[in-house]
C-alpha cells in the first residue's frame, strides 16, 4: 500500500444527487421551492467568493473535540497537511 492505489471508487456527488432527487420527489413542493430559493439567495450574497481561498493564510484556532480535549490547528499542521471540513450538524 503506497496511498496511491485506488482501493475504491467513491462517487459522493452521485449519492448526493440521488438524495436530492428523493427530497424533490417526497418533500412538499413548498418546502423544495423554499429551500432552493434560500440557496439561490445565499449564492447571490457573494459568500462563496468571500470565503478563504487557495493561497490565503489559514487562521489558527483551538477547539474542543468530542471528549473536551482542545485541538490546535497549528499543532496538527506541524505534523502534516490538515484537511478541515465544516458541516452543519448531524440532525
Amino acid at each position: 500500500m503506497d496511498g496511491e492505489q485506488p482501493t475504491f471508487i467513491f462517487e459522493l456527488q452521485k449519492e448526493l444527487d440521488a438524495i436530492r432527487e428523493n427530497f424533490r420527489a417526497t418533500a412538499s413542493p413548498d418546502v423544495v421551492t423554499a429551500m432552493e430559493r434560500s440557496a439561490e439567495e445565499l449564492i447571490r450574497t457573494g459568500i462563496v467568493e468571500r470565503a478563504l481561498h487557495v493561497g490565503s493564510p489559514a487562521p489558527d484556532f483551538a477547539l474542543p473535540n468530542a471528549v473536551g480535549r482542545e485541538v490546535r490547528l497549528s499543532s496538527v499542521t506541524a505534523r502534516g497537511p490538515s484537511v478541515i471540513t465544516f458541516y452543519r450538524g448531524a440532525w
Binding site: L42, I47, V48, A51, L52, H53, V54, G55, S56, P57, A58, D60, L73, S74, T77, A78, G80, P81, S82, V83, I84, T85, F86, Y87, R88
Partner: peptide, 19 residues
C-alpha cells in the same frame, strides 16, 4: 456554516478550498 472543505499545509497556507 456553509459546508466547506480546506486543505492547510504546514506553513498554514490554504492549498485547497471548496465552498
Amino acid at each position: 456554516p456553509l459546508p466547506g472543505t480546506f486543505v492547510i499545509d504546514r506553513t498554514m497556507t490554504v492549498r485547497l478550498s471548496f465552498v
